[in-house]
Design a protein around this nucleic acid. Structure first.
Length: 443
DNA sequence: TCGTTCACGC
DNA sequence: GACGTACGTGAACGAA
């Protein structure tokens, strides 16, 4: 697969993008080294504690007896052996978090906890400490490494710092601090991929949803679990957003999706907003087994594509067929994509690529604006659909104004293919507080 | 040294 | 109306 600029705008995006990202690379990110070193000690102690605990258990003893000095807590075949011989748990395939997490066994839970500690310690704490120069890290931001022409980041990777697990997130993100008197400010494009996709397929229903901030995820949640809209909680909405709507857009289908959605309600107790059990509600609606749930999800899938978004569905078919004839497709942002691709790739690449190009355009023009105004604010990184900056307190309001103007207004003057309003959400830490401290700024 | 597996992000 | 989730980086392990 090969992606090439096909016009001036495409070329300019890469040229100016490389320069702007280069400025951010030189700015660097301030790191609380002392905090990281303390975190390292803490994680090391926790790791030792868990290793001892595991060694004392039945499985740990067999492990030590069988493997002796070559015992590796990260060794997968060793773990597979112990699980089978000691606990009668015979796992054939993957031993990842998804599989082990479903096993109700204290030994297995300790193994997972140990994995988490080791990951945090080696990839994040040590990985970052090793890159610190005089209190700063200088991550690379690359434009030449990905097939879709998204970016990547390395040494250290600034784009996969833990955020979902609150405990690990606090340990690591507390080390990312602003320069003295500054705040860390992160601006995210809201639903940029869904919006860019809509610019390609122009489905009227989707355009209407996005123009009016209609809550599609909530409505899909009500359909998927067969409950009235008012019973949908944030948690249920999130499950459906991440396990139904997004997978659907990425080209997944009912068999995989139904499995995830079913697990979500059977492996933990989910409550509706009036305190009822979501699984009981499903059963009340005559969905008692997985196979009846699967049929139900199949119907929702069909309705989703053929009744709700038929134009989007047609676009996917036509885009794929055109590619098969021409063996390439062009993006709105000035690139031609050619070579062997699978269907899902043909449909996803232009969307993912163009969505990132919106971010990159904003990043470039924000860099230029800051320089022109001789501001002290520094862009320090970018995470696919968000821009992270180190902002002096007295430039905070001005920075947000410029950022909003460029990323939601000026970009639409430059690219007339953006037929929808773009929105950004801004989060910021307090002055002198870390990235972990960031809070939504309401304006 | 290199392929595989895992875990973190969007 | 079609057989099907996308994109990355890095660490540990273990065979070559």
């Amino acid at each position: 697969m090969k992606l090439n600029p096909i016009n001036e705008k495409g070329y300019k995006l890469l040229h100016d993008g490389a320069l702007a990202l280069g400025v951010a690379e030189q700015n660097g990110i301030r790191i609380d080294v002392h905090h990281l070193e303390k975190t390292y000690q803490k994680l090391e102690a926790e790791e030792k504690r868990f290793e001892k605990k595991i060694l004392k258990s039945k499985g740990g003893k067999l492990w030590k007896k069988t493997y002796g000095d070559s015992l590796r807590f990260g060794g997968l075949e060793q773990l597979r052996f112990v699980l089978r011989e000691c606990y009668g748990i015979d796992v054939k395939g993957t031993l990842d978090k998804g599989v082990l997490g479903k096993i109700d066994n204290p030994f297995v839970k300790d193994i997972l906890e140990l994995r988490k500690l080791v990951k945090a310690k080696s990839t994040y704490v040590l990985g970052i400490l090793n890159e610190v120069i005089d209190g700063y890290i200088y991550p690379n931001f690359n434009l030449h490494t990905t097939v879709t022409y998204r970016s990547s980041s390395s040494s250290p990777n600034f784009q996969n710092i833990p955020v979902r697990d609150p405990w690990v997130s606090e340990l690591v993100r507390s080390a990312f601090i602003p320069r003295k008197g500054n705040r860390i400010v992160e601006a995210d494009y809201s639903g940029i991929e869904v919006r860019v996709a809509a610019c390609y397929h122009k489905d009227p229903t989707m355009l209407q949803y996005l123009n009016t901030n209609y809550d599609m995820h909530k409505e899909m949640a009500a359909e998927v679990y067969k409950i009235p809209l008012k019973l949908v909680t944030k948690q249920i909405r999130n499950i459906v957003k991440n396990k139904f709507v997004f997978p659907m857009f990425y080209g997944s289908y009912h068999k995989l999706i139904a499995l995830d959605l079913w697990e979500a309600v059977t492996e933990q107790t989910i409550e509706t907003s009036d305190g009822k059990n979501l699984l009981s509600e499903l059963k009340y609606q005559k969905i008692r087994t997985f196979s009846s749930f699967l049929e139900h999800i199949k119907r929702i899938e069909d309705k989703f594509w053929f009744d709700r978004f038929p134009v989007y569905q047609n676009w996917r078919t036509e885009w794929w067929e055109t590619y098969q004839k021409k063996f390439y497709f062009d993006t709105y942002t000035g690139f031609s994509c050619r070579g062997y691709m699978k269907k899902n790739e043909v449909i996803n690449f232009p969307i993912q690529g163009s969505a990132f190009h919106c971010l990159l355009w904003s990043f470039i023009n924000l860099t230029k604006a800051l320089r022109k105004r001789k501001m002290k604010t520094k862009l320090i990184g970018q995470i696919h659909d968000s821009i992270v900056a180190d902002v002096p307190e007295n430039e905070f309001e001005e920075y947000i104004d410029i950022l909003t103007e460029i990323s939601t207004k000026k970009i639409r003057e430059y690219w007339d293919w953006i037929i929808l309003p773009l929105e950004i959400e801004i989060e910021a830490s307090d002055v002198n507080e870390s990235w972990f401290n960031k809070k939504v700024i309401h304006r």
